[in-house]
Structure formats: structure tokens, C-alpha cells
Design a protein around this nucleic acid. Structure first.
Length: 646
RNA sequence: GCCAGCGUAGCACAGAGGUAGUGCAAUCGAUUCGUAAUCGAUAGGUCACGGGUUCGAAUCCCGUCGCUGGCUCCA
């Protein structure tokens, strides 16, 4: 634990002390330090609200002022259990109720591990430590919010009240932290998205379904342009697929059992009367299938092939009739199965591999309402998707090329703070969360690890985060208000191509199943743009800026307006997103409005410029850069856009 | 989905049982101006929606929808 984490962890103990002084019946679970602060989970009939904070903080101040020593006490398991039984843990004294959560925690401490208590004043808690020497070391603290959390993070457990706070060595550090938070809020993409007219949501359209205003659509178009150029150069081919597919495809892909809950409920395309008939036929089919199974198992099938084919025909006929009556269609939650069908649409040879199919595919996922978050977590998303079908020999080069593609993108956008997370499976969850192919998991994870190690990319390895069909690399970034998101992904799939029966004819004339790499270096437009808005605080580089240039006139005499119009027309002819401000406002007012709209380049022209055929250039955030000849300015702008410079 | 809080004009907010307010933005007029706010006027609202309590509800109660902070989840 770092110094500041120790301080914050101690603050959590002080928080518990204070809560107990007000509500002696409070029961505590865990109170760790977290990024930027600490929390303590408390079970309490009273609903703690921000109005209670002043009272709790007052008690905390008293405890800090008393400057109690944090005393470390080693106890045996029996002593710990006994104290918890008397309700003396996370408590000021013995109580009638046992310390339930602490009992549970003690029971989960492995044998042989030293059990320690920490005491400050009359508050004693089960705790591994460490702590600061005295409560007085907590120089500055503040309770920030209260939320709810499941005990041990499990949805099936009861919810506790989680009281969050933060603490620092001194007030100066804390003031700096809150000032930084205020700044961060200003770049929240939800706020900027509205102010800059990039996107919106509407109750009649639905939660999590963003609508892109013209200025936001510009960002989409520019990103797609970049992606298409990059992918073309890397040998990708573009495809297009529909937004829906029949249920049968997701049965085949294996997605349904894993993801049905995250998919929009299917639409059933069946006429009313056909529905009843379908229900009857489905029952008949179940019976026929059962008979067929019995028949096949009995061994009679081999002695009477004629009868077998008749039994088979019956089930097939029923299946066909049911299919003909109507079918369920799902909105696609992923593009993979559609792309697999494109792989299967044409006989493939080893000469075709690696085959790289790319599409900005729109997917729909029915995320739980509470999970939605601006553009970062939505229900309709446009993925920078592609699937690379390759042989095992080609895997390393292909997978590495994708990683290199991320890094190049990050360079273009100046993204420096990110974390590459190598997500692997959890062997205890094979067959549930992960396909049950233990050897293939180990093998493909080793392949990915090798690629990463050989290319010298920094990464952390995290178990239990893989996709159901294989290991992956996720690139994690943080939003302005500190939430973590996957911005890009690169995944191996050893399972689904097999399920789809995807094959290519190899050199030896044998059919083989390819490996599939699912990749989305730019993630989805929604999340990526949400991230970019915050990354740039809305001040996009020229090539991305929704309004690249605004021409502002000083005065509104006709010759001046004509001059402005001609520059405007010239820029528009070169597809520069240029606007004109010919209003009668004073130049200060025009500049203010352009700056507020985060227009990248302002060309200010007055009488003086008209005479010298010049314009004075002002760049958002950089101020007045002085006057330059007209032609030169236009050429500079075009070059900067072409080269995707700032 | 769960817990808690919040929904007042396009945006930011005030109003806390008795006729709906301010600033910015918008519209109209005037203003001819050199790098972050020229002046004035006008318009804009079933106070999220539905029910209830009351002589009377934006305000109190219940439900629904949405948003926010977390939790869970995140192909």
C-alpha cells in the first residue's frame, strides 16, 4: 500500500468510528482505499444521505483531533471469531449482535495467515493494515458521496450503503484535487456533446440510442475515412451486412446461451393464426425428435436404414413447415456471425488467407438501463469491426499487425494514457462463461502472450476477462470523471469458426478450419468519439474539427463581405468545413462566439486586410497569430487537414 | 436490473401550497466596429408523464418514464 493509500485506509476506520458514534447499530463490511479516496460499506437501517455528511464529518474531526494511536494487535483465529461473535469487531464495544460480515471475512481468511486487529481509541476493527501511526496524521478529508453496493460485489447478496470519501496529507493537496475534479467535469463528453451540438438523446427514440447532429456526424465521417484508408493499406476488404438475422444463426454461433440477455428481444415475424399452428407443430416436432433419438439409440437404425430415413424425413419436414410459418429475427449484437457467413459464401483456399473482412457495422445491445452512460455505454453502436481469417502460422503476424495498428492510431490522436489488458479465461468457468476447450485456451493464450512479449508491448494479464470464444487484448482508457472503459479490442476466436463449419482447402487438399481474429482498434464510434471529446476537451485538431474555419468580418461593407465570401467559397470548394460570420456584431462578440463554439481557425478580415489581400489568423486556444497572405493561409489549412495535423 | 438522489423555457439555475422567474441562447430593430460580451424590444412553460390529497398542487402522497452517482454487467 502506498503512503496515500495507507492514509485513506486509516480515514475509512475513522469514518466507521464516526458512524458508530451516531448509529451504534451500524454493521461494517469492507473499507479499503480506492483510486482518489476510500469507502466503507455499512449496513444500517438509517438511509445515509449527503445531509448526514456534516454530522459524520464532525465526529471524524473529533477522532482526528484526539490523535489516537493506531494499535496493531495479532490474534488467533479463535480469538477473532470470539470477538466477532460478541459484535466487538468494527465496533466501539461489545454489542448484542455479532459482527456478521466480519465473521464471514474471518472464515474466508486462509489457515496459517496472521489475523490482525487495529484499534484507534475505543474503535476496534478486523484489518490487515497497514495504518498511519495516529489518527491526527489525516491532514484533510471530505465525504464525497454515498451509493449502494452488493456485499462482496455479488448481485445475489444484500446491498450495503457505501460511503465514499477522500483524504490527503494536507488541505492544499485536497483543494488541488477538487479543483482538478471541477476541470474534469468541464470536459465531460455529455456536457460538451450538448454544448457543441454533437449528439443528443430523445425519450421517444429510447435510452442509450444516440442521435448524431451534423457536427457529430462529421466526427463519424472523418474517423471512418481514417479507418478505411488505414485498413485498405493493410489489405482489408470492405463488406456490408444487414442489421438483423434469424435466430438460427445465433443458435449456430453459440451466442444465444451466452448473450440472449444482452440482445434486444427478437421480433417474431408470424401471422396471428400461423402462430397457433406453429405451436402445435413445435410440439409434434419435439415428440418426433424424441422418437428419432430412441430409434437411433436402440441400434435398430443400422438394421433398417429405410425406416431411419423415414424418421429423419418426418422431423425435417416438420422443421421446414415451422420455419415456413414465421421466424424470429434478432437485431445483431455483433457482426461476427454475419462475417462468418461471408467467409462461407465462397469456397476458400489457403491462398485466400489471411482474409480480412472489414465493416463499420451497427450493432444493438440491450444493456441494463443502469449501465448506460452517455456515449460510452450505449445500446446502438457502430463498430470499427473486422474479422481476420488466418492459419495458425499466420496468426502471430496478423495479431501483431493489429496491435501495431492501435499504436499508430493512438499516435495520431496523441493518446498516451492507456493500459493494454491481456484478458484470459478462468479454468474454473469452462463450459459456463468460457467454451469448454481447455487445451485450446492454453494454446491460444500462449500464442497471444508470445506476440506481446516478442513485440515488447507493455501489458497486464487478467484472468476471467476473456471472450467466451477465446483470449483477447483490451485497451483500457479512463473517462474525464474517472470511469474505466475498453476503447479497443483484439480477440482470438478458436471456437466459433468451427461451429459455423468454416473451412478452407489447404495445400494438402484437406479441409481445415481457420482461426479468426476479431478486432476493433477504434472500438465503436460512440465510445471512441465520447473518449475523444474528453481527450481533446472538445478542441479537436483541424482535420477532425466539426467547424474547421470561420471567417469573421470587421464591419459589413460590401467589398469586405465579397472578399469574405470569396475566401469562403475557395475553402468550401476544397471541402473545408468553413462558415461565414457576416453579422453586424462587433468583432469581439464574433470572436467570443467562435471561441465558445470551439471553431478551430478564425480568419479575421477588415479593411486593412482587404487592401493587402491578407487575412489575420486566429486559432482556438492559441490567440491571434497575425496576418498572412490569403493564398498562403488557404494552402496551410489544406496541408494541415491532409496530413491530419493539429 | 438493484440502492439512493434528481426531472421548472434550447442551456444554466431560482421559486417549496395561493396568477411561473432571472441570466445566456433565439427572433426583430438600432449600432459600421481590429482580436473573448454594443444597446433595446419581443417571443418562449400543461413546472417529465399519469393518478391522488386539497377550496386551491410546480410545491404534499403514489405510480410510470427519464437522468445522475454507485453496484452488478460490459461480446
Amino acid at each position: 500500500m502506498t503512503e496515500i493509500e495507507t492514509l485513506r485506509h486509516s480515514s475509512a476506520h475513522v469514518l466507521a468510528t464516526a458512524i458508530l458514534r451516531i448509529w451504534p447499530e451500524a454493521q461494517f463490511a469492507a473499507g479499503p482505499p480506492v483510486e482518489n479516496g476510500f469507502y466503507y460499506d455499512v449496513d444500517l437501517p438509517h438511509r445515509i444521505t449527503p445531509e448526514d455528511f456534516a454530522r459524520i464529518e464532525e465526529e471524524m474531526r473529533k477522532e482526528i483531533k484526539a490523535n489516537h494511536r493506531f494499535e496493531r494487535i495479532e490474534v488467533s483465529r479463535e480469538e477473532a471469531l470470539q470477538l466477532a461473535g460478541k459484535g466487538a469487531l468494527a465496533a466501539l464495544s461489545e454489542r448484542n449482535e455479532p459482527s456478521l460480515f466480519k465473521l464471514d471475512i474471518i472464515e474466508n481468511i486462509p489457515d496459517g495467515e496472521v489475523i490482525t486487529l487495529y484499534r484507534n481509541g475505543d474503535f476496534t476493527d478486523l484489518c490487515a493494515g497497514p495504518h498511519v501511526s495516529h489518527t491526527g496524521r489525516i491532514g484533510a478529508f471530505k465525504l464525497t458521496h454515498v451509493a449502494s453496493a452488493y456485499y462482496k460485489g455479488d448481485e445475489r447478496n444484500p446491498q450495503l450503503q457505501r460511503v465514499y470519501g477522500t483524504a490527503f496529507k494536507n488541505k492544499t493537496d485536497m483543494d488541488a484535487y477538487f479543483a482538478m475534479l471541477e476541470e474534469a467535469k468541464k470536459r465531460d463528453h455529455r456536457k460538451l456533446g450538448r454544448e457543441m451540438e454533437l449528439f443528443c438523446f430523445d425519450d421517444d427514440v429510447g435510452p442509450g440510442l444516440p442521435l448524431w447532429l451534423p457536427k457529430g456526424a462529421v466526427l463519424i465521417e472523418e474517423l471512418e475515412k481514417l479507418a478505411k484508408e488505414t485498413e485498405f493499406a493493410a489489405g482489408y476488404q470492405r463488406v456490408r451486412t444487414p442489421h438483423i438475422a434469424r435466430e438460427s444463426m445465433y443458435v449456430c454461433s453459440g451466442h444465444l446461451p451466452y448473450y440472449a440477455d444482452s440482445m434486444f428481444p427478437p421480433m417474431e415475424l408470424v401471422e396471428e393464426e400461423a402462430r397457433e399452428r406453429k405451436r402445435k407443430l413445435s410440439l409434434e416436432l419435439e415428440i418426433a425428435k424424441e422418437e428419432r433419438r430412441k430409434f437411433e439409440l436402440s441400434g435398430a437404425s443400422s438394421s433398417d436404414p429405410g425406416l431411419l430415413s423415414e424418421v429423419r424425413k418426418r422431423t425435417e419436414k416438420l422443421e421446414q413447415e415451422i420455419e415456413g410459418l414465421g421466424t424470429r429475427y434478432y437485431l445483431k449484437a455483433m457482426n461476427c456471425p454475419h462475417h462468418h457467413k461471408l467467409f462461407a459464401a465462397v469456397p476458400r483456399s489457403y491462398r485466400d488467407l489471411p482474409l480480412r473482412l472489414a465493416e463499420y457495422g451497427t450493432c444493438y445491445r440491450y444493456e441494463q438501463s443502469g449501465e448506460l452512460f452517455g456515449l460510452m455505454r450505449v445500446r446502438s453502436m457502430q463498430m470499427n469491426d473486422a474479422h481476420i481469417y488466418c492459419t495458425e502460422d499466420q496468426f502471430e503476424a496478423e495479431f501483431n499487425a493489429v496491435n501495431q495498428m492501435y499504436l499508430r492510431y493512438f499516435e495520431i490522436f496523441g493518446i498516451e494514457k492507456y493500459l493494454m489488458r491481456f484478458s484470459t479465461h478462468d479454468p474454473t468457468k469452462l463450459g459456463q462463461k468460457f467454451v469448454g476447450e481447455p487445451e485450446l485456451w492454453v494454446k491460444t493464450e500462449e500464442m497471444v502472450r508470445n506476440v506481446l512479449n516478442r513485440s515488447g508491448i507493455n501489458y497486464i494479464e487478467v484472468a476471467n476477462e476473456a471472450a467466451f470464444y477465446g483470449p483477447k487484448i483490451d485497451v483500457q482508457v479512463w473517462s474525464a470523471i474517472g470511469r474505466e472503459f475498453t476503447i479497443a479490442t483484439n480477440q482470438v476466436d478458436f471456437a466459433v469458426p468451427k461451429r459455423f463449419g468454416l473451412v478452407y482447402k489447404d495445400r494438402d487438399n484437406l479441409e481445415k478450419t481457420p482461426l479468426c481474429i476479431h478486432r476493433a482498434p477504434l472500438g465503436t464510434h460512440e465510445r471512441f468519439i465520447g473518449f475523444l471529446i474528453e481527450h481533446y476537451a472538445g478542441n479537436f485538431p483541424l482535420w477532425l474539427a466539426p467547424e474547421q474555419v470561420r471567417i469573421l468580418t470587421i464591419g459589413v461593407e460590401e467589398p469586405l463581405l465579397d472578399f469574405a465570401r470569396s475566401i469562403h467559397a475557395e475553402l468550401r470548394a476544397q471541402e473545408v468545413r468553413a462558415e461565414l460570420d457576416l453579422s453586424t456584431d462587433k468583432i469581439n462578440g464574433k470572436i467570443l462566439r467562435a471561441e465558445q463554439r470551439k471553431v478551430h481557425t478564425m480568419l479575421v478580415i477588415g479593411k486593412r486586410d482587404l487592401e493587402s489581400n491578407a487575412v489575420s489568423v486566429r486559432v482556438h486556444g492559441k490567440g491571434n497569430l497575425g496576418a498572412k497572405p490569403c493564398g498562403e493561409v488557404v494552402a496551410d489549412i489544406l496541408a494541415a487537414i491532409r496530413e491530419r495535423r493539429g
